[in-house]
Amino acid sequence: MKICFLMYPWDKVDPVSDSTLRLIHEAHLRGHTVAITTPTKLTIRDTVAYAFCQVLSRKIVAKTPHSLHKNASFQTKMLPLAGFDVIFLRANPPVDPVALNFLDSVKDSVFIMNDVDGVRIANNKVYTAALNDPDKRFVPTTHVSKNREYLERVLADAPSDRMILKPLDGYGGSGVIVIERSASANIRSLLDFYLGEKEDRYVIMQDFVEGAEEGDIRILMLNGEPIGAMKRVPADGELRANISRGGREVKHALSKAEKALCKHIGPKLVRDGLYFVGLDVIGGKLIEVNVLSPGGITRINRLNRVKLQRQIIDFAETVVRAKEMQAARKTAYRQAIEDAVAEG
Results as ranks from 00 to 15, higher is better:
K2Q: 14
I3F: 05
I3K: 02
C4Q: 07
C4L: 15
M7G: 00
P9W: 08
P15E: 06
P15A: 03
V16N: 13
S17D: 08
S19K: 04
H25S: 02
E26A: 06
H28P: 01
R30Y: 03
R30S: 10
G31V: 11
T33Q: 15
T38Y: 05
A49L: 04
Q54I: 00
L56D: 03
I60S: 04
P65W: 08
S67M: 09
S67E: 14
H69M: 01
A72F: 02
L79Y: 01
L81D: 05
L81P: 09
A82D: 05
P93N: 12
K107G: 00
R120S: 09
A122T: 12
A122P: 10
A122K: 11
A129L: 12
L131H: 06
L131Q: 09
K136A: 13
F138D: 02
H143K: 01
S145N: 02
K146H: 11
N147T: 00
E149A: 14
Y150E: 12
L151T: 07
L155E: 03
S160G: 08
D161C: 10
I179K: 06
R181K: 15
A183F: 12
A185R: 13
N186S: 14
R188L: 00
L191R: 04
D192K: 05
F193Y: 15
K198S: 14
E199H: 15
D200N: 15
V203C: 11
I219L: 07
L220F: 08
I227A: 00
G228P: 06
M230I: 11
R232C: 12
P234T: 08
A235N: 14
G237S: 13
N242E: 07
N242M: 09
G247P: 09
R248P: 01
V250F: 07
H252R: 02
A253F: 13
A253S: 15
S255M: 05
S255E: 06
E258Y: 04
K259A: 08
A260T: 03
A260H: 03
H264W: 12
P267M: 07
R271E: 15
G273A: 05
G278V: 00
L279Q: 10
D280E: 07
G284S: 03
L286S: 07
V291A: 05
S293M: 06
S293T: 00
G296V: 06
R305F: 13
R305C: 05
R305P: 00
V306R: 15
Q311T: 04
K323Y: 05
T331F: 12
T331R: 15
R334P: 00
Q335H: 13
E338F: 09
V341D: 02
G344Q: 07
